[in-house]
Design a protein around this nucleic acid. Sequence first.
DNA 1: AGACTATATTAGCATATACTTACGTAAGTG
DNA 2: CACTTACGTAAGTATATGCTAATATAGTCT
Lengths: 107, 107
Amino acid sequence: MVDLALRAIVEPRRREILRLVQSSELSAGEIAAHFTVTRPAISQHLRVLTQAGLLAVRRDGTRRIYRTRPEGLEEVRRFLEQFWQDSLERLKEAAEAEERSHHNGRN
Amino acid sequence: MVDLALRAIVEPRRREILRLVQSSELSAGEIAAHFTVTRPAISQHLRVLTQAGLLAVRRDGTRRIYRTRPEGLEEVRRFLEQFWQDSLERLKEAAEAEERSHHNGRN
DNA sequence: AGACTATATTAGCATATACTTACGTAAGTG
DNA sequence: CACTTACGTAAGTATATGCTAATATAGTCT
């Protein structure tokens, strides 16, 4: 599921959509109004985001109101945090080793 | 540049490569040995990762040694952190508003 | 029910991407 | 210099992706 979310987030237009609805929930039409591409294109992006667990939908009459699903974002965030973690730890260790090799005060 | 790095990271095989070389630098051949796909395929992934600023290369005789470029990862990390930030702040605000609406002690 | 509104879904298309096979290249070795 | 080693690059291919135009669906209004 994280993989779906990652792929969803990479597409710039979808990140833009996420940014839009994170301030306030919006209908599909309101979202589409912010873009130059056709509404079906936005519909498809919305579906991708929803299936990735990043958006939640609610019906209001004929409209569909989208809002972010923070748990989805959190999941991705944690996944990547784990991913950086090792790398940054290595970097830190390397820096410390470098530091020790210079403990004679010279450069 | 962050966009390149994001796209690079999304591909699972490339994340795998990053994980491999983050513990210790490896030659292209050693990296390829961990996979079932052909070496050219890995070469192409390595190029994508390098151009995205996530890997650094060094020549050693006929070999090419790859290592992670932590600054690249850091850049992506900061970009995404910024991205989550707003969303998580909203979530927090929403939770607090929710809390206030229940300050009569009932549920 | 019929017409209207808001949105999704489908089919088709162009481009991007991940792969393989074949070939090119640069550095070491006899 | 020929040969080998360790790669990269190029060409071709299959599949994925993002888009548009056309069609379908679901709710609302009279």
